[in-house]
Structure formats: structure tokens, C-alpha cells
Simulated assay, not measured.
Amino acid sequence: MIEASKQMENGKQATNDNPLIIGVAGGSGSGKTTVVSKIIDSIGPDRVLLIQHDSYYRDLSHLPFEERTKQNFDHPSSLETELMIRHLDALRSGYPVDIPVYDFVEHTRSDDSISALPHRIILVDGILIFSEPKLRKLMDIKLFVDTDGDVRLLRRLQRDINDRGRDLNGVLNQYEKYVRPMHLEFVEPSKRYADIIIPRGGENLVALEMVTALIEGKLSS
């Protein structure tokens, strides 16, 4: 198990095992955050590093703000997935990384970053992570959170209005123009790559208990 206090001279983290990389995908508002939180609570936060695909949105500071708001943030090209892949490769090899910080109000990447050390378990969270073959290949366990579209829309409305400073019309227009079409083109088809599909997200306690037992079993082996 990785001990954060023991650093090697070359900056590499001391490690006895390769990390277990777990991907958690699903549509926007499907309940991925709840599933991830319950996994972390069950396994223990000291053993888990959470990396969110949303942190890797491309910096749009070179565009006027009005142009930034018109971008398709639900297409795979909007994310710097190649950087996430490099970071996961580094963490798997025992090296720390600096995870970007993204401003969802301004649609820009902050000058700050979050320093992340390797952990025994790495959770990767994002709606599009299974649609990227190179990223998908890095994952040992792939979970897909499956939730009805009307529930996902309501949750997205609440999040974007309360947490990201959007207005109702803007959120609905974005959903109709980008979110739903991209879900049908990229997210829903990627479900076939999942090892486990979790209906109803964090409400499905039986499925979460099974996932936790699977993770513990792989750690023990």
C-alpha cells in the first residue's frame, strides 16, 4: 500500500502495488457523484484518489466570454483527455501529478492546480471516459451509472443553476442543442464497455455493496 510520507529522491512515490483504476461513467446528472462518494466512504478516503474528467476541460480564455458559452462541452474534443491519460500513466508508475482546476462559470482553466499523489485506488469520474479507447484501456473496473433521462435533466438543471451560475433558458437550450444529442452519440453507446451497470445510481444500495465487495476482493488478491 502507498504511504504518502515516504518519497524517493527522484520524486517517485514509494509503492508496493500497482493502483486499481476504477472508471465511473454515466450521463450528466445520473448520480455518478453519489456513487463515487459511497465507494470512497466504504473503501476509506485514505486509500482513494478521485480524478474527475471535468477538471480537464480545455482552457477557453483565448475566446471572448460570449463565444465560450456557445461551445459544445459535451463533445469529447472539449476535454484534454490526452493530459488525463498522461497523468494516470504517471500515477500508475508511482509519480505525483498536478491536476488542473477548471472554472465552470468563466469556462477557463485556473492558474492553480491540485497536487495528487499515487493511491492504492484511483477513481476516474466522467460522462465520456468510456468513449475514449486509450483512457478506457487503463481501467481495471468500469462502472456505468444508468438513470432515466428526465431525472438526469432535473438534476442538471439544479446543478447548473445553483452551482454554475446559469439561467433556466440557457441550461435548457444547452441540453436540447448539445447535451442530449451528445449523450445519444457518445455516452449511451459507451455503456457496452462497462463491467457493471448500476441502475438508479446511489439509490441502488445492493449494487453498491456488490461493487465494494468486488473492489475489496481485488485489493486482497
Rank of each mutant, 00 (worst) to 15 (best):
R180L: 12
V171W: 06
D98P: 00
L49M: 10
N72H: 11
L172M: 10
S93H: 14
L83Q: 09
Y95P: 00
L60K: 07
A90V: 05
L208P: 00
G126S: 01
V206F: 10
S78Y: 03
L153T: 07
L79N: 03
A207K: 14
G26V: 06
V151L: 14
A194F: 11
S42T: 11
R152Y: 07
D150P: 02
V48W: 09
E132W: 12
S78L: 05
N72I: 00
M84E: 03
N18W: 10
P64Q: 10
M1G: 03
H119R: 10
D140A: 04
V145C: 09
G29S: 10
E106A: 06
N16L: 13
G202A: 05
R136K: 10
A14I: 09
N16H: 13
Q71I: 00
K191N: 00
E80R: 06
R192A: 08
I114C: 01
D111V: 06
N10E: 15
A25V: 04
A4D: 15
V211K: 00
R159Y: 11
R156H: 01
L20Q: 07
S131A: 14
G217D: 13
H75F: 06
R166D: 13
I127D: 02
S5G: 13
D17I: 08
V179R: 08
S42P: 11
L20P: 11
H75M: 01
R192N: 06
K6W: 08
P199T: 11
G11N: 15
G149Y: 09
D167S: 06
N173A: 14
D112W: 15
L172K: 00
T15D: 05
D163K: 13
S131F: 09
D140S: 04
H183S: 01
R47P: 01
I85R: 06
D74H: 07
D98L: 13
K134Y: 02
D54G: 02
E203L: 09
S78M: 02
I22L: 04
S220P: 00
L117V: 10
A25W: 10
E82I: 05
V105C: 09
V101A: 10
G149S: 12
S77K: 13
H119T: 00
D17E: 14
S115T: 15
L135D: 03
G26T: 05
K177C: 05
M182S: 05
D163F: 11
P199D: 12
D146F: 11
V179N: 07
L63S: 08
E66R: 06
V36C: 03
R136S: 14
L219S: 00
L219H: 03
A4L: 15
R68M: 03
S113A: 15
L208H: 03
D112E: 15
N169L: 11
D195M: 02
G44M: 12
D59S: 00
K137W: 08
L128F: 08
E176V: 08
N169A: 06
L88W: 11
I198F: 12
E203N: 11
D160P: 08
I161K: 07
M1T: 08
S42K: 15
V179D: 14
R58S: 01
Q158H: 15
S37H: 12
A213W: 08
S42Y: 14
T212S: 11
G165F: 02
I22G: 04
E185R: 12
I161M: 09
H75Y: 10
I22P: 02
L153G: 02
H87N: 09
P100A: 12
D111C: 09
S78W: 09
R166P: 10
